[in-house]
C-alpha cells in the first residue's frame, strides 16, 4: 500500500483526477515514463479521492500476483499429454 509517509510529498503541479485515473493502472504496473510517473504519484499522494483508489488498485495487483502459481495437477496433465503425443510418434520425454 501507499503509506502516509508517501503522502507527505511537497506540493507540486499535478494532474486532475480524470487524467490520474486514466493512468492509474499503468502507474501501478510501472509502465509510465518518469515524467508521468512523477505526476501521477504526486497526484495520488495528495488527492483524497485518488489515494484510496491507488491503494485498492495495488491490493488487486498484489492479490493477483499471489495466485500466479503452478497448477496442482501438473504431473497428471503431463502424463496424459505425453501419452497422446507418443501415440503420434513423439519420442521425447
Amino acid at each position: 500500500m501507499i503509506t502516509d509517509t508517501d503522502r507527505k510529498t511537497p506540493d507540486m503541479p499535478s494532474l486532475d483526477c480524470g487524467a490520474a485515473v486514466r493512468m492509474l493502472w499503468d502507474y501501478l504496473d510501472g509502465n509510465l515514463d518518469s515524467v508521468n510517473e512523477a505526476e501521477v504519484r504526486a497526484h495520488v499522494t495528495r488527492c483524497s479521492h485518488c489515494f484510496p483508489h491507488a491503494n485498492f488498485g495495488q491490493i488487486v495487483i498484489d492479490a493477483m500476483a499471489q495466485v500466479r502459481n503452478t497448477p496442482d495437477n501438473e504431473a497428471t496433465v503431463r502424463a496424459g499429454v505425453l501419452s497422446r503425443l507418443r501415440a503420434e510418434g513423439y519420442e521425447g520425454s
Partner: peptide, 15 residues
C-alpha cells in the same frame, strides 16, 4: 478496510 484487505489472504477470493 483497505488495510484489512491488504493484510488478508485474498487468494481464495481473487480466484
Amino acid at each position: 478496510v483497505l488495510q484489512r484487505l491488504s493484510d488478508a489472504d485474498l487468494r481464495p477470493a481473487i480466484h
